[in-house]
Design a protein around this nucleic acid. Structure first.
Lengths: 194, 194
DNA sequence: GCGTAAATGGACCCGTGAGTCCGTTTCGTC
DNA sequence: GACGAAACGGACTCACGGGTCCATTTACGC
């Protein structure tokens, strides 16, 4: 459904043009299945599970992704792209604090249905390293501090820890209700208020 | 070192009196090793690891604890006891909010060095069910709300989610510095302030 | 010291999941 | 429609962790 599922979004320079039609079709199915299965079960999901969901033998999965880690990376790139875009959008808004607030709500709603994302984010460099988008995110926090809406010592790291934290626990407890997730997003932000 | 390591603290009615001296000694070593290993590695720790740490064959571990789950339960009881006592003490203090504050700090410092506890608490009935001590804890929160120091909708569940949350992430990130842990404990409480 | 039951631990079984091999099927071309 | 290459997937190996077995060792009452 998302365009990021198509082939050109995948390994750098993979030339899908000259692959057989059935291979292309299966590859699409595999990525879609992986996104689903990992979202449901997190990193605990197995390659055979993904293969079964895709209606394919597991050797076929291993042909596209030589190791489970490669498959995880492909899914991670796919999912994190959404977050990056959302941060970009927030960074463009005039009111930093309000932008931050709605960003956290959006993120909460996404994380509520994606165990994989919750487990992977704390370790992913696109989220924790110094990239353009993390710097935009940090800028947003700094601006909200400047506005006097967040405490002076508030950092992006604080947001990562708090959001990553309640997300994990809510998933563990099997809490799906989006209202609850939004509430904790708001609480996390309140923790950083002046 | 702790008295809870001794035998009478273990399975209900286990009569250690008539066991051979070497068996008693090994059993002590096993519990101590299990506490250590689980604290370091969480539930990922294996029974062979515990056995190795105790300087004992793994069959010896399985003689005391027929399954890994039994061993986990023994360690969980051992570790959670400390928390319960701490909650009891807090419940006796006059100022509920202040009691809560120092309780959270204490808990943070304990969790910082015990991955096992962080992983187990969200699932443990002694911590989440309705027991005397969880009711005391909830009473503490209610009292702080009554004082007007916490927001009206603050619950014990909120504290569990926030504390369990940042703890997991800090451990994942390998952050050990107690000052950081105390800071997040304070942030979590701030999230629930009026 | 000696005999016996208790305790031990290395060797083993079993299930599971990652990753590989290769005989068979399917696509696409001529 | 037939042929060769590409793709497939069932069956395999391997590593590892939970849990069991049993020949050997050890404590301890006599």
């Amino acid at each position: 459904m998302s365009p990021a599922l198509s082939h050109e979004a995948d390994p750098a320079g993979a030339d899908w043009a000259d692959r057989r039609a059935d291979a292309r079709r299966n590859h699409e199915r595999i990525v879609a299945a992986a996104v689903e299965v990992f979202a449901e079960r997190g990193l605990e999901a197995t390659v055979p599970e993904v293969a079964a969901r895709a209606g394919v033998g597991k050797a076929t999965v291993y042909r596209s992704y030589p190791t489970k880690a490669d498959l995880v990376e492909a899914v991670a790139r796919h999912r994190i792209t959404w977050l990056i875009e959302r941060v970009d959008a927030a960074a463009r808004q005039p009111d930093a604090f309000e932008a931050l607030r709605s960003l956290l709500i959006d993120i909460a709603e996404r994380l509520a249905s994606d165990r994989f994302l919750v487990e992977v984010l704390p370790h992913d460099q696109r989220w924790n390293g110094q990239t353009r988008s993390t710097e935009q995110f940090a800028g947003l926090v700094a601006a909200a501090v400047e506005q006097g809406r967040l405490r002076p010592d508030a950092t992006l790291q604080d947001i990562r820890v708090l959001v990553g934290g309640y997300s994990r626990v809510l998933l563990d407890l099997g809490i799906r209700d989006p209202a609850q997730w939004r509430r904790y997003a708001a609480l996390a932000l309140d923790a950083l208020r002046t």
